[in-house]
Computed example of a mutant assay.
Amino acid sequence: MSAHPYSPAFEVGGFGFVSGALSIDADGVAVGGRTEAIDAAMTRLSERLATIGMTLSQIVKTTYFVTDVSLRDEANKHYEATFSEPRPARSFVEVSALPYGATVEIEAIAHGRK
């Protein structure tokens, strides 16, 4: 994968803004399967948060971009398993395509340090 002209995550004023994390493996290859793709995107999101010293538990808002809106049920189950209540706000948007052949991309806003 080539370098990109943006930060994977950026912290300012106690907020962490995380660029979209794709459903790719550590080598940049799209992960197949529905729940596997969601897991991979969340893993990449967690890695990006770590670059600014934050964790998934600090997320206050996510936006999911998916190439198939029917992934919503799997995403909801995954959200319930990943985040405790009160869970972060979330938007869920279907798009025609994502980079690298990915099927899921998750961006997030986090707040505070632990």
Score class of each variant (00 low, 15 high):
residue 53 G to P: 02
residue 86 P to A: 07
residue 5 P to W: 10
residue 24 I to S: 05
residue 36 E to F: 08
residue 65 F to T: 09
residue 59 I to A: 07
residue 62 T to H: 00
residue 47 E to N: 13
residue 15 F to S: 02
residue 102 A to D: 06
residue 29 V to F: 03
residue 19 S to P: 03
residue 72 R to G: 00
residue 63 T to I: 08
residue 48 R to P: 05
residue 81 A to D: 14
residue 65 F to I: 04
residue 77 K to E: 13
residue 4 H to N: 09
residue 83 F to R: 08
residue 91 S to V: 05
residue 82 T to F: 08
residue 93 V to I: 15
residue 101 G to L: 13
residue 32 G to C: 06
residue 17 F to V: 14
residue 38 I to L: 13
residue 50 A to L: 08
residue 42 M to L: 15
residue 63 T to L: 05
residue 13 G to C: 06
residue 77 K to A: 14
residue 21 A to V: 06
residue 30 A to W: 11
residue 98 L to E: 03
residue 24 I to F: 05
residue 33 G to A: 13
residue 15 F to R: 07
residue 98 L to C: 05
residue 79 Y to I: 01
residue 77 K to C: 02
residue 93 V to W: 08
residue 98 L to M: 05
residue 50 A to E: 12
residue 88 P to R: 00
residue 38 I to F: 01
residue 40 A to M: 06
residue 30 A to D: 08
residue 35 T to I: 12
residue 11 E to H: 03
residue 86 P to Y: 07
residue 32 G to R: 15
residue 93 V to A: 09
residue 51 T to V: 12
residue 13 G to V: 06
residue 10 F to M: 09
residue 23 S to C: 04
residue 81 A to M: 10
residue 40 A to E: 08
residue 83 F to L: 07
residue 43 T to L: 11
residue 4 H to T: 13
residue 74 E to Q: 06
residue 34 R to S: 13
residue 80 E to N: 04
residue 86 P to V: 09
residue 43 T to Q: 12
residue 22 L to M: 05
residue 99 P to I: 15
residue 100 Y to I: 03
residue 8 P to R: 03
residue 94 E to S: 05
residue 50 A to Y: 09
residue 61 K to C: 01
residue 62 T to P: 00
residue 40 A to H: 06
residue 64 Y to K: 01
residue 45 L to K: 02
residue 55 T to P: 00
residue 50 A to R: 10
residue 9 A to Q: 06
residue 89 A to Q: 09
residue 60 V to Y: 01
residue 71 L to A: 06
residue 73 D to P: 00
residue 72 R to W: 02
residue 41 A to P: 08
residue 31 V to S: 12
residue 64 Y to S: 03
residue 36 E to H: 10
residue 41 A to S: 14
residue 27 D to F: 11
residue 58 Q to F: 03
residue 74 E to A: 15
residue 53 G to W: 08
residue 56 L to D: 02
residue 49 L to F: 10
residue 84 S to R: 13
residue 22 L to A: 02
residue 4 H to V: 12
residue 60 V to R: 04
residue 62 T to A: 01
residue 73 D to M: 01
residue 71 L to C: 02
residue 93 V to C: 10
residue 26 A to W: 04
residue 82 T to H: 07
residue 64 Y to P: 00
residue 67 T to W: 15
residue 76 N to R: 05
residue 88 P to G: 02
residue 40 A to L: 07
residue 88 P to V: 01
residue 21 A to Q: 05
residue 72 R to E: 05
residue 21 A to L: 06
residue 84 S to F: 12
residue 68 D to I: 09
residue 6 Y to W: 11
residue 8 P to M: 01
residue 19 S to Y: 14
residue 59 I to R: 02
residue 20 G to A: 13
residue 76 N to A: 05
residue 102 A to S: 12
residue 29 V to P: 00
residue 14 G to A: 06
residue 24 I to W: 02
residue 4 H to Y: 12
residue 34 R to E: 15
residue 15 F to D: 01
residue 18 V to I: 15
residue 99 P to Y: 15
residue 87 R to A: 13
residue 100 Y to M: 09
residue 100 Y to K: 04
residue 37 A to R: 08
residue 11 E to K: 13
residue 44 R to T: 14
residue 80 E to D: 12
residue 11 E to A: 14
residue 61 K to L: 06
residue 26 A to E: 13
residue 9 A to P: 04
residue 22 L to G: 00
residue 23 S to F: 07
residue 83 F to A: 04
residue 51 T to H: 07
residue 6 Y to K: 01
residue 59 I to V: 15
residue 76 N to H: 02
residue 26 A to P: 00
residue 54 M to A: 11
residue 53 G to Q: 04
residue 25 D to L: 09
residue 61 K to E: 05
residue 22 L to V: 03
residue 98 L to W: 10
